[in-house]
Design a protein around this nucleic acid. Structure first.
Length: 891
RNA sequence: GGGCGCGUAGCUCAGGUGGUUCAGAGCGCUUCCCUUACAAGGAAGAGGCCGGGGGUUCGAGUCCCUCCGCGCCCA
């Protein structure tokens, strides 16, 4: 009985009492040691599957949302790996941006002062991390490079926690390939891409009105806006006619902006005001003469149908100001307060006196004050009327945005260029969207753009704009001709690095230079993750093997930001799409169907769930959430997943026992037949399989169908369907097939039937372990290790061809007929409240001739499983089974 | 106001190109069973005019229209 070693691997390692505990740590260590998830850099592009993993924001805490969508991606990665592709699966950390900046300020008690030089001897304050101590002292000013060092120090611990979580849930990430969006590599890519955009004219700076957050003291981009319904009040104000014209009454929610009023505007078709177009009126109290103009953006149904244009109250003002060529009369400053002096146009003593009552006040304070001023002058009609109206906010802010004029950097995105806009919409059609309807969100976002992408931010913790400006003899910056660094010097920080040909003493001095004070928006770096991960401009062979990437997984709420901006960058950098497939995941909702978020306090912590149910069970729950669909958090699903994992352990143990346990059949003959049977892959002729029984052939037929279905589903990123089909098959495998062949596998009906059963069991088990591997990698690897060599995760994905050959066209019917009869017999026993092991003296099956013929082929198995002594078949139209149970024996 | 998605058993959801297979799964509930893989299990049962109304068709959860309700994105 000699057998090749590789056909009898470690049978002894099937445990008596298999369990799930400890599998995560065991296999994570094993995978790390064997390096099976490392990217093979020698493989050519067609054999590579590259994934643009979303870098999680590491400044927050972990929650189940992280487990959810990352599991979806991992399932695809594992499937692709089993199909033979080299999977490029890096991990990034997003530690660039406001959330980290704020945490560092509070944690260390520091503030960033970009004007300070780098201090190489600086170290973190000793009381860092102790809020009570930090809050009692003054904040320490540090340079931007020092501040970034503190950010890196603080985020390192968070990144460790995320990596631990991601390892615990079995992400098959190549952990040798990680990046952080604030690290030197990312800063370099971000700056280099910006400089190339600048050279090609895709980036430009301009002094223009832009949306401004007065709390954060920074400009913000269109993609970061939220409209919020807030209370306001219409103030009906009198503008007096000139040259004897009637007065005009306007409704405004922002009366404090009257000193910045530059015109009135009504719709060109509005008969009420048409006679007045071209005439002028005088503003109340401030007494400035302004024109009455026409523009189609004016809404005749709003208020009195005529609006005042101020510089600037909202984005409509900006449009009117630009298109009607109006002057600027600024009153609101960057701090959100009214400037000390009124615009020059306010000349009258009364006007200036009135303005003095507003100067220095916040917009809200000034609003109250000016209502009093107008009440005194009689220019307001009645009391302000309370309304609610949508107002633009920075998504992270809590004060309404103001619009101030400032010098900012932009990247073109089609918002002001129809050709570019169309080109970017066309890029969307080059990508496969999962689910397909998500493309509509992308297209409608682009269609609604009304300006280019503002990328400069007046913040500290971010990637600096890598430019300097010459200062003329008067110390004024020469904006039009920036000094750019050499590529080799990147990344640079212009606040502490010197441009070539200058020295530090010339910083800020007339005839010297100054650094650009701004940093780039966090999306300006995140939009480059495909370039960052694939070695763009730094590892050209890696880049060639992995870009454009195959898959971008992400949540649907950031299509307008991350997804769109990435397409813009790849369009410019590579004249290509950044990836071929966009897989959009949904959100986790709490059981009340509300989105989970920290602020709502309904976040589930994954570590506890992983402890209680195991990683495979948590992954099971995640995998049940279909692509793009929001999924409610349901702890019940974890239990089901756990039960499935346990079932796989037990079913594997059961099937594998038949290698050693023999009953009545000729042991030597069975051993010999099984020895010749390694895996189905090695056989090409159906006769060689030795699978002679109809029920076994039928199972293989259904298994072939399953393999085809799951393969198709996974190819189209529909992991949920693949899991559902596999799970459903698996339960019928254990509940019906295993019961039906149990006796035969024990050898109770001869050697041939025994061999057929055992081979089928082993072939099916092997494939089921593989089909489950992407979903439940730990338990799959565990049961695989009991009898196979190597990792299941690098085994070849099952193919249906050999199965079909072995199934001899048996079809699915024998399985269905056998299961149906067995089910009826079980029901009879259940209804009689008798144990399932009760003997059935006679079972009479009524069915069609075709099905009865099939039943005959599987009757031995059915009788054995149902403990049926005599099986009688009767022709008929309606399927039914009458079971005569053996008499109850006296207790 | 515009766009997208969703409304199927008490709950969570499946139902690729309309046709005995589409009226399903799991959970929950009820009953039974310690059967030699599994009692952190197994077997069986009850539960639904597939949101309402029209239409196309020989035939519609499945396609079209409309209404109602819910969610998300954008104005």
């Amino acid at each position: 009985m000699s057998r090749p070693a590789d056909e009898t691997p470690s049978r002894a390692s099937v445990p008596d009492k298999p369990g799930l505990e400890g599998l995560e740590a065991k296999w994570d260590a094993e995978w790390e040691a064997s390096g099976i998830y490392r990217f093979d850099t020698t493989r050519p592009r067609p054999e590579v599957f590259s994934i643009d993993t979303p870098p999680p924001t590491v400044s927050g805490s972990l929650h189940v949302g992280h487990v959810f969508s990352y599991t979806h991606t991992d399932i695809i990665a594992r499937y692709r790996r089993m199909t033979g592709q080299a999977v490029f699966y890096p991990m990034g950390w997003d530690d660039n941006g406001l959330p980290t900046e704020r945490r560092v300020q509070n944690y260390y008690g520091v503030r960033c002062d970009p004007s300070m030089p780098y201090d190489p001897d600086f170290s973190a304050p000793p009381d860092a991390g102790r809020p009570s101590a930090v809050s009692k002292r003054r904040t320490i000013a540090v340079s931007r490079p020092n501040f970034i060092e503190l950010c890196e120090e603080l985020t390192a611990a968070d990144e460790k926690a995320f990596e631990d979580l991601f390892r615990h849930i079995g992400l098959s990430v190549d952990w040798t390939r990680t990046y952080a969006t604030i690290d030197a590599h990312c800063r370099r890519v971000s700056q280099l891409a910006f400089l190339e955009n600048l050279e090609r004219g895709e980036a430009y700076q301009i002094e223009a009105p832009s949306l401004w957050d007065v709390s954060f003291q920074t400009a913000v981009a269109q993609a970061e806006l939220d409209d919020r319904e807030v209370p306001g009040a219409y103030h009906k104000l009198r503008f007096s006619g000139t040259d004897g014209d009637d007065d005009i009454w306007i409704d405004t929610t922002r009366p404090e902006l009257v000193p910045s009023c530059v015109a009135l505007v009504a719709h060109p078709d509005d008969g009420r005001y048409r006679p007045r177009f071209g005439s002028t009126v005088r503003t109340p109290v401030f007494d400035v003469e302004v024109p009455v103009l026409a523009h189609e953006l004016a809404d005749p149904d709003k208020g009195t149908g005529i609006a005042m244009i101020c510089t600037f109250g909202d984005t409509a003002d900006v449009t009117w100001w630009r298109e009607l060529d109006l002057p600027v009369r600024t009153v609101i400053g960057r701090d959100g307060r009214l400037a000390a002096e009124p615009p020059a146009a306010v000349e009258s003593a009364a006007g200036r006196a009135a303005y003095a009552r507003l100067a220095g006040k916040t917009a809200a304070q000034a609003r109250t004050e000016i209502a009093a001023v107008f009440a005194e002058s009689g220019d307001i009609d009645g009391e302000p009327r309370a309304i609610t109206h949508p107002v633009k906010f920075f998504e992270k802010g809590d004060k309404p945005l103001e619009i101030v004029s400032s010098r900012q950097w932009y990247i073109r995105n089609g918002g002001r260029d129809d050709d570019l806009r169309q080109a970017l919409i066309d890029r969307g059609t080059e990508m496969n969207w999962v689910p397909a309807y998500m493309r509509a969100r992308y297209e409608s976002w682009i269609a609604g753009l009304n300006g280019d992408w503002l990328i400069s931010r007046q913040r500290f913790f971010g990637v600096p704009i890598p430019l300097w400006y010459r200062l003329d003899a008067g110390g004024t910056p020469v904006w039009d001709d920036p000094i750019r660094p050499a590529d080799a010097d990147l990344p640079i920080d212009p606040s502490s690095d010197c441009p070539g040909g200058y020295d530090e003493s010339q910083r800020g001095a007339p005839g010297g230079f100054m650094g650009d004070p701004d940093v780039m928006d966090t999306w300006a770096t995140s939009s480059l993750t495909p370039q960052i991960a694939t070695g763009w401009r730094s590892d050209e062979s890696l880049h060639a093997a992995t870009f454009p990437m195959d898959m971008r997984p992400q949540a649907h709420d950031i299509i307008r930001t991350w997804l769109f901006s990435s397409v813009v960058r790849a369009h410019f950098d590579a004249d290509a799409v950044p990836w071929h497939n966009c897989a959009l995941s949904g959100w986790i909702l709490d059981p009340d169907r509300k989105k989970m978020s920290k602020s709502k306090g309904n976040v589930q912590v994954p570590t506890e769930l992983l402890e209680r149910y195991g990683a495979d069970a948590v992954r099971y729950w995640a995998a049940c959430g279909r692509p793009g669909t929001d999924t409610a958090f349901d702890e019940q699903q974890f239990r089901i997943g756990r039960r499935l994992a346990v079932k796989l352990l037990n079913a594997s143990k059961f099937v594998l026992r038949f290698d050693t346990v023999e009953h009545g059949a000729e042991v030597a003959e069975i051993e010999r037949a099984l020895a010749a049977f390694a895996t189905l892959e090695h056989a090409s002729d159906s006769r060689l399989f030795g699978i002679t029984e109809t029920l076994d052939q039928s199972l293989l037929h259904r298994l072939a169908d399953l393999v085809d279905q799951t393969t198709v589903a996974l190819e189209s990123f529909d992991y949920a369907r693949a899991l559902e089909r596999t799970e459903s098959f698996f339960w019928s495998f254990t509940d019906d097939y295993l019961e039906l062949v149990k006796a035969r596998a024990y050898g109770e009906s001869g050697a041939a039937g025994c061999v057929s059963a055992r081979r089928t069991l082993r072939a099916a088990l092997r494939m089921l372990q593989q089909l489950f591997a992407p979903f439940m990698p730990f338990v799959a690897e565990e049961v695989w290790s009991w009898w196979q060599t190597g990792s299941v995760h690098t085994s070849e994905w099952p193919q249906s061809k050999q199965l079909r050959a072995a199934s001899a066209d048996a079809g699915a019917l024998p399985s269905a007929v056998a299961a149906a009869v067995l089910g009826e017999v079980r029901r009879a026993k259940s209804e009689a409240k008798r144990p399932l092991r009760t003997e059935v003296v006679r079972a009479t099956v009524t069915d069609t001739a075709e099905r009865l013929a099939v039943l005959e082929q599987v009757s031995a198995d059915v009788c054995a499983a149902g403990r049926i002594t005599e099986l009688v078949r009767v022709g008929g139209d309606e399927f039914s089974v009458t079971s005569e149970l053996a008499a109850e024996t006296a207790a």
